[in-house]
Deep mutational scan, measured.
Amino acid sequence: NQASVVANQLIPIQTALTLVMMRSEVVTPVGIPAEDIPRLVSMQVNRAVPLGTTLMPDMVKGYA
């Protein structure tokens, strides 16, 4: 099973992502693949992302 990127904390809207905000976890449905974590650093979320939420491509500006 492929690991996805999951929020390690509440990430407020417009926040630039850092490594400490994300973790990898095998979840359903599958979100952004964990191997993309380095690419996500400094990208902004376009909505508030609660703790434990799987990051989906449409939540990160410039990802999809």
Rank of each mutant, 00 (worst) to 15 (best):
Q44Y: 13
M43S: 06
S4F: 03
D58R: 06
V41Y: 01
S42A: 11
A64L: 13
S24E: 13
P29I: 06
P33H: 08
M22L: 13
G52E: 02
V20Q: 13
I11W: 02
G31K: 00
G31E: 01
T18W: 04
K61G: 07
L40A: 00
I11E: 00
L17P: 04
Q2M: 12
I13W: 10
A64I: 13
V27C: 06
L40V: 05
A48N: 15
P50L: 10
V45G: 00
A48H: 14
Q44D: 03
A7N: 01
V45W: 00
L10C: 14
P50W: 05
R39S: 08
P33K: 09
V26S: 12
V20N: 15
V45L: 09
M43W: 07
P33N: 11
P38V: 08
L51M: 15
K61P: 13
V45T: 14
T15A: 10
S42V: 04
V6F: 01
E25P: 00
N8H: 06
V41E: 06
N1C: 07
V30W: 08
V45P: 02
M22Y: 02
D58E: 14
T28H: 09
A7W: 03
G52Q: 02
A16C: 15
N46C: 09
V26T: 11
Q9I: 11
V6K: 03
P12H: 08
V60E: 03
Q14P: 02
M22T: 01
V6E: 00
Q2Y: 12
N46L: 14
V6L: 09
P50N: 10
T18Y: 04
G52D: 08
L10P: 11
V27K: 06
Q9N: 07
T18K: 08
P29T: 05
V26W: 09
L19K: 09
M21H: 09
T53C: 08
A64G: 14
I13V: 13
P57N: 05
P12S: 07
V49P: 03
V5C: 07
L10T: 11
V6T: 05
L17I: 10
V60P: 00
L51K: 12
P33V: 10
I13Y: 14
Q9G: 04
G62V: 04
P38I: 08
P12L: 06
V6I: 14
A3C: 12
S24H: 08
L55E: 01
L51Y: 13
M56W: 06
P50S: 14
L17Y: 00
L51V: 10
N1Y: 15
M59S: 05
G62K: 06
T18C: 05
A3N: 07
T54V: 10
A3I: 06
M56K: 07
N1I: 15
D58C: 15
R47V: 13
V60N: 02
S24T: 15
Q44S: 14
R39T: 09
A16I: 11
V20S: 15
L40Q: 00
S42W: 07
V60H: 03
G62R: 06
M56S: 06
T28Y: 11
L17F: 01
V45A: 04
L19N: 08
L55Q: 01
Q2K: 07
P57F: 06
N1L: 15
M56C: 07
M21L: 04
M56D: 03
P33M: 06
Q44K: 13
P33Y: 09
R23H: 05
I13F: 13
V30T: 10
L10A: 13
T18G: 04
M59R: 01
V49D: 02
L17Q: 01
K61V: 14
G62N: 14
V41W: 00
L55A: 02
T54R: 00
L40G: 00
R47C: 11
K61M: 12
V26N: 11
P12Y: 05
R23G: 09
G62F: 07
M22F: 07
M59P: 01
I13N: 15
N8L: 05
A64F: 06
L40W: 03
V6C: 05
Q2C: 09
A16V: 12
N8A: 15
P50A: 11
V41C: 10
L51D: 14
T28N: 12
L10S: 14
L10H: 15
S24M: 07
V26K: 06
V6R: 02
I13H: 12
M21C: 04
L17M: 13
T53F: 12
I32K: 01
R23M: 05
R47Y: 11
V41K: 03
Q9C: 10
A64R: 10
V5L: 03
I11G: 01
T53M: 11
I11P: 01
I37W: 03
V60G: 02
P57M: 06
A48C: 11
G62D: 14
P57L: 05
V49Y: 03
S42N: 14
Q2T: 14
P29Q: 05
D58S: 10
K61A: 14
V45H: 02
Y63G: 03
Q9L: 10
L40H: 00
P12I: 04
M22S: 00
V26L: 10
R39A: 07
Q14N: 12
D36K: 09
P57Y: 10
P12N: 07
T15G: 05
I11Q: 01
T18H: 05
M43G: 02
G31A: 03
V27R: 09
I32D: 02
Q2A: 11
T54L: 04
L17V: 03
M21R: 00
T18Q: 10
G52H: 07
L40S: 00
P57D: 07
E35M: 10
T53E: 12
